[in-house]
C-alpha cells in the first residue's frame, strides 16, 4: 500500500509496532483472562490463582437457580438476534438502494437514523417504553424489545450498506434492464448476488449488535429479560466464576457468528475465484 522509500525498517517502525502490540494485548488480554478463569476449579475464586481446571462453573450455570432464567434469556437473545439479522439485512438493502436516488424525506430519515446512534440507549428505551404504555400496548421482548434493537442495528446497517453500495455500479442494473430483465429479475439475478458479501456484513452487524444490546433493552423487554440484561444483573450479584463462565459462553457465540460470517464471505469470494480459473 504505502511504499516507503527506506529499504529497511527504522526505529519508528519498531516503536509503533510495540505500541500496536501492547494495544492488542490491552484489547484481548482481559477477555482471555476471564476465558481462562471460567475454567476455575470448584473451590477457586474470581481471581488467579487457578484452583484446578474444571467445567464446574459452566455446569453451575445450568443447574443452579441462583442466576435467574438464563436459559430463557439466552433463547430470547438468540431469537432477537436472528430477527434483527433478517430484518436489518432486508430493510437496509432496500433503504440503501433507495438512498441512491433523490427523494423527498431522504434527509430527515437519514438524520433520524444518525440521531438514533447518538442518543443514549437508555433514553431511547425510556421513550419506547413510555410510548407503548401511553398507547396501552404491553411491553414485550418480541415487539417493543425488537423495535429497540432495530433502532440500534438499522442505522449501523444503513451506514455499512452505504459503504457497500459505494462500490456498486448502477449500470449493472441498467445493463440487466437493457437485456429485458424485470424489476424482480434485476434484484435477484444482479443486485443481490453482487452485493451478497456486503449483505453478510450487514447481517453480522444485525445479529451481534442485537445479541449484545443492553441499555435499550433494559426498559423495553417487559418481564422477560435478554441475556445481556441477565449478565449485567449478575455483575452486581454474582461473586463466583460463574460470571466468567457465562461470559465465555456468550463470547463463544459471538465469535462463532463472526467466524461464520467471515467463512461465508470467504466462500462466496472463493466461488467467484474458482469461476475465474475455469
Amino acid at each position: 500500500m504505502t511504499q516507503t522509500n527506506t529499504p529497511h525498517r527504522g526505529l519508528a517502525f519498531y516503536l509503533l509496532a510495540a505500541f500496536f502490540g501492547l494495544f492488542v494485548v490491552f484489547l484481548y488480554g482481559p477477555m482471555l483472562m476471564i476465558f481462562i478463569l471460567s475454567f476455575q476449579g470448584p473451590t477457586g475464586g474470581l481471581t488467579f490463582p487457578m484452583h484446578g481446571v474444571s467445567f464446574h462453573w459452566f455446569g453451575d450455570l445450568w443447574s443452579s437457580s441462583r442466576y435467574g432464567d438464563l436459559g430463557g434469556a439466552f433463547r430470547r437473545s438468540l431469537v432477537l438476534g436472528g430477527l434483527s439479522l433478517v430484518i436489518t439485512a432486508v430493510v437496509c438493502l432496500f433503504a440503501g438502494l433507495a438512498f441512491r436516488h433523490r427523494f423527498w424525506g431522504a434527509g430527515p430519515i437519514f438524520y433520524l437514523a444518525i440521531v438514533s446512534l447518538v442518543v443514549p440507549g437508555i433514553l431511547l428505551g425510556l421513550g419506547i417504553s413510555q410510548l407503548f404504555q401511553l398507547l396501552g400496548i404491553q411491553l414485550s421482548w418480541w415487539l417493543s424489545g425488537l423495535g429497540a434493537h432495530l433502532s440500534w442495528t438499522l442505522p449501523f446497517g444503513l451506514l455499512i450498506m452505504f459503504a457497500v453500495l459505494n462500490r456498486f455500479d448502477g449500470s449493472w442494473e441498467e445493463a440487466a434492464r437493457d437485456a429485458g430483465a424485470s424489476a424482480w429479475q434485476v434484484l435477484s439475478y444482479v443486485t443481490v448476488p453482487i452485493l451478497f458479501p456486503g449483505l453478510i456484513a450487514v447481517a453480522l452487524f444485525g445479529f451481534t449488535l442485537s445479541y449484545d444490546e443492553m441499555p435499550r433493552s433494559l426498559l423495553t423487554v417487559g418481564g422477560n429479560n435478554t441475556l445481556p440484561i441477565e449478565i449485567s444483573n449478575m455483575t452486581t450479584n454474582v461473586t463466583t466464576p460463574a460470571l466468567y463462565a457465562i461470559g465465555t459462553v456468550t463470547s463463544a457465540v459471538s465469535f462463532l457468528v463472526i467466524a461464520a460470517a467471515f467463512v461465508a464471505i470467504a466462500i462466496v469470494q472463493k466461488r467467484r475465484a474458482r469461476a475465474q480459473k475455469g
Binding site: 432496500f94 433507495a98 430519515i109 438514533s116 431511547l124 425510556l126 413510555q130 423495535g147 429497540a148 438499522l154
Partner: peptide
C-alpha cells in the same frame, strides 16, 4: 424501498424521542 426503514425509525426513534 425506504418505507420499512422510515416506519421503524419513526415509530422506534422519532416518536419515542418526542414522547
Amino acid at each position: 424501498q425506504v418505507a420499512p426503514l422510515a416506519f421503524i425509525m419513526l415509530t422506534m426513534v422519532g416518536i419515542p424521542l418526542v414522547t
